[in-house]
């Protein structure tokens, strides 16, 4: 009950100590947090340093060159790898985005909340499955299935179009795109679900009261968050571009400028690093692979920064409106 200060002299030293302790704590935690910036900076620096030999030797030809010959001429050009990454990621988006949109809408608009929890959980589990297990499943389950039941029919029906002609191995460009699509769906749909969930109910009611069907209500919800949806798609693109093991296991790993069809084997930036970094026997070879890594880092950084900015902005905007 007797809470009183004995005298000023004991209070002030304590206060002083308190402030010093707080400042020390603040500085220590700030230092730890700054390691995140340090790591990113160091990463960029190390990759530039490692690539320097390759950049000096090939310059812009590294990006535009179409020859990858570590054995004889020792010339390295990454254009086919960049194309391989771009095309497989594009296929992944083409397949994955509509499905993600459907899943996101199912979770926020269509499924009653009490089942939604279970389904959301299953989708999150899909995100937790390691990449290498997708690859294993892709090699031994998905490839035989696609080869025997899907690709042969596609070729029979659309074989007159060049991209659907040619021999079917099972693995290849289209398979890699499909595996990537499966892998980005949980991420993209989860972001979309979160975006749709913060749309205030008053907006749904407003359009329902005007005589809107469910589809039209859903369209209003999507248009409300459209820039965020674009951000989610770009986020998925970032995932697809950097994905390594599963792609390496199903794409066939063949270095060529352009595949003869969607069923043909190809290569990606990440896959060549995984396959060759350990076997690179001389400095220029290592440097060329580092250069691929640097290009990949640059692309994913741009994509990530862009998508985070968009998603952040939308979330803030929508929350701001919802508060009013």
């Amino acid at each position: 009950m007797k809470v009183k200060y004995k005298n000023k002299h004991t209070v002030f030293p304590y206060l002083k100590w308190l402030i010093i302790g707080d400042n020390i704590f603040k500085i220590i935690s700030a230092l730890f947090a700054s390691t995140i910036l340090l790591l990113l900076g160091l990463m960029v620096y190390e990759l530039i340093k490692g690539s320097w030999l390759s950049i000096q030797t090939f310059g812009l030809d590294f990006i535009l060159g179409t020859k990858w010959d570590p054995a004889i001429s020792k010339v390295f050009g990454a254009l086919p790898l960049i194309l391989g990454t771009a095309v497989t990621s594009a296929i992944a988006l083409l397949i994955g985005v509509p499905i993600s949109l459907g899943v996101g809408l199912a979770l926020s608009e269509y499924i009653p909340k009490r089942y939604g929890f279970v389904i959301s959980f299953l989708v999150e589990l899909l995100a937790a499955v390691p990449s290498v297990i997708y690859g294993l499943w892709g090699m031994f389950v998905l490839i035989p299935f696609l080869r025997d039941y899907i690709y042969s029919h596609i070729r029979a029906l659309f074989g007159f179009i060049p991209i659907f002609s040619g021999p079917i191995y099972g693995g290849g460009v289209l398979t890699a795109g499909i595996v990537l699509a499966i892998m980005i769906i949980p991420t993209v749909s989860a972001v979309m679900r979160d975006l749709f969930m913060i749309v205030p109910n008053s907006q749904r009611e407003a359009i329902i009261a005007l005589g809107a069907t469910k589809l039209e209500t859903v369209k209003t919800v999507v248009s409300y968050t459209r820039s965020g949806v674009i951000g989610a798609i770009i986020l998925g693109l970032g995932r697809a571009i950097g994905e390594t093991m599963a792609v390496t296991m199903v794409i066939g790993n063949r270095f060529q400028v352009w595949p003869s069809s969607l069923f043909d084997a190809w290569y990606t930036m990440s896959a060549i690093i995984a396959n060759e970094l350990l076997e690179a026997t001389y400095d220029l070879y290592v440097s060329a692979l580092m250069n691929v890594a640097l290009a990949l880092l640059f692309i994913t950084l741009v994509i990530n920064i862009l998508s985070r900015l968009i998603v952040w902005r939308t979330l803030r905007l929508v929350r701001g409106i919802a508060k009013e």
Binding site: P200, S202, Q203, E205, A206, I207, T220, Y224, I321
Partner: peptide
């Protein structure tokens, strides 16, 4: 409705 809910977009 109780609170004005124009479509802000």
């Amino acid at each position: 409705f109780q609170k004005p809910n124009p479509f802000p977009m």
